[in-house]
Structures are given as structure tokens and as C-alpha cells.
Design a protein around this nucleic acid. Structure first.
Lengths: 117, 117
DNA sequence: CAGGATCCATAACGATACTG
DNA sequence: CAGTATCGTTATGGATCCTG
């Protein structure tokens, strides 16, 4: 998911795009950041209940390197860091939203309890 | 990507959807099947130049278990197997297309040689 | 032609403890 | 509060050879 992969050429635009938003948490992080506009590290951690600090940090860094999110540090005590979507990241939202709607329909069909994002 | 994962509840619809189309080749397979309507095993293998037979079979089976594609076997010699999208799989195409367009724009920005799907 | 089987490498992810 | 560091597990993908 990180640097390495992007070094070898993507086979095509679909391949390229999936590499950038693949991974277990990227979709959800982007979606949350869209819904709430700006979120602190701790808020994201609470929102994504199953994530560990390591994975959260790692995923946030990858998204940042990919210019899909922005990181703003407030140098104060206690520290405060805010994350938000970049323009490029925001362009992905319609896609994620449609995918989410599709997911909702499928989950109903399969009788999963519908869990809202 | 296979059964195991889908056993534990997805956190939400975004999580659910990403699980179903994640993986290195799923997006591209769905996209190709959409563009060409129906494809044989060997055609897919040629289209996805970097895939091994094992991965192709494995990915196709997962997509089939997920009811995103259909598999039609012709019992003749030499054997012939055709793959095509299901209704549910076809519903994903607009989103893959959207994502593909986004990928195209990004690749231009980064000055990757644009490789068409 | 369309795969199955086997073995292997690495990448992705996770638990836990600690820190500026 | 917002992370690091270290270590371990599992999932994913790959090479190679074989077959109805």
C-alpha cells in the first residue's frame, strides 16, 4: 500500500486507483473525514473502533503522502492534530458514497444488521 | 478476501463494500468483463498480463462466491468457460468507471504514462 | 483449454508497551 | 493527546509443476 507499490507502474487507471484507496481502513477514514470535515487523531480512533494506534498512524501517513488528506499540527500542550481531506481526496467522495449505498443494499439482501458509517 | 473475512461483521457499509471489491485484481476483472460483456478464462489471462493462473482462478472464484460474476462451463473438448457480470456486479460498474476517471486525472498530474484499461 | 496442487515470499495487519 | 517501537501473526500474492 505504501511507497514501494507505487514505484512499479500501475497496469491501468483502475489498478492505479485501487492501489491508492485499498487497504482495510482508507475508505472509512476518507468517508469520516468527509462527513465531519475535520477530525482529530483521537476522534478518528474512537470512530474506527477496531483500529490500533499503529495502524491509524500508518494509514494516515500513507493517505497524507498520497495527498488525499492534510495534517495540521497545533504546537501546544496537550498536542492537537487535525486531519481533513484535500481537494483530491474530496474528489473521491462521490465514489465512496455510491459504493456505500451499494453496500447498504447488499447488506439488506444478506440480512446483515445495517450498521451506519 | 475470501470467506473468512466476511464471517466477522463489517463495521459499516463502506467497510463491507471495500471488502468485496478489494484485492489486487478484482477491480480490473470487473471492468474488463463490463467492457467486453463476456470473456473466456484465457482471454482474461491475456488481458491481465501480470496475473498467474492460480491468482486468476482464485480471484474469479471469490467474485463468483460473492455473486458479482457468473461462470458458464461448456462441457466440450477442449473445454470452454465463459465469465460475465451478474446484475449485482454490473451495478458496480458506474463506480469503477468513476474511480477510473479519477485515476486517469491523477496519473496525468503525476506524469505517469497513461495506460488505458 | 482451463485449471489444481504445492510450496514459498512478503506485505498487511495486530498486541502490547512505552513517550515527548 | 498523539503518537513510537518492537515483535509476532495472518493474509495475500507468486513460482513452478502437474492434469482432466
Amino acid at each position: 500500500m505504501a511507497k514501494k507499490k507505487r514505484v512499479d507502474e500501475p497496469a491501468c487507471a483502475v489498478d492505479y486507483a485501487f492501489r491508492r484507496i485499498g487497504g482495510k481502513y482508507k475508505g472509512r477514514i476518507l468517508w469520516y473525514l468527509n462527513a465531519r470535515a475535520v477530525m482529530r487523531y483521537g476522534e478518528l480512533r474512537k470512530a474506527i473502533k477496531d483500529i490500533t494506534p499503529k495502524m491509524l498512524t500508518q494509514t494516515l501517513r500513507e493517505l497524507e503522502d498520497d495527498k488525499l488528506i492534510q495534517r495540521k499540527v497545533y504546537h501546544e500542550v496537550p498536542p492537537k492534530v487535525e486531519y481533513s481531506l484535500t481537494e483530491t481526496g474530496a474528489e473521491l467522495i462521490p465514489f465512496i458514497d455510491h459504493l456505500r449505498q451499494w453496500g447498504d443494499r447488499q447488506m439488506e439482501k444478506e440480512a446483515w444488521p445495517g450498521i451506519s458509517c
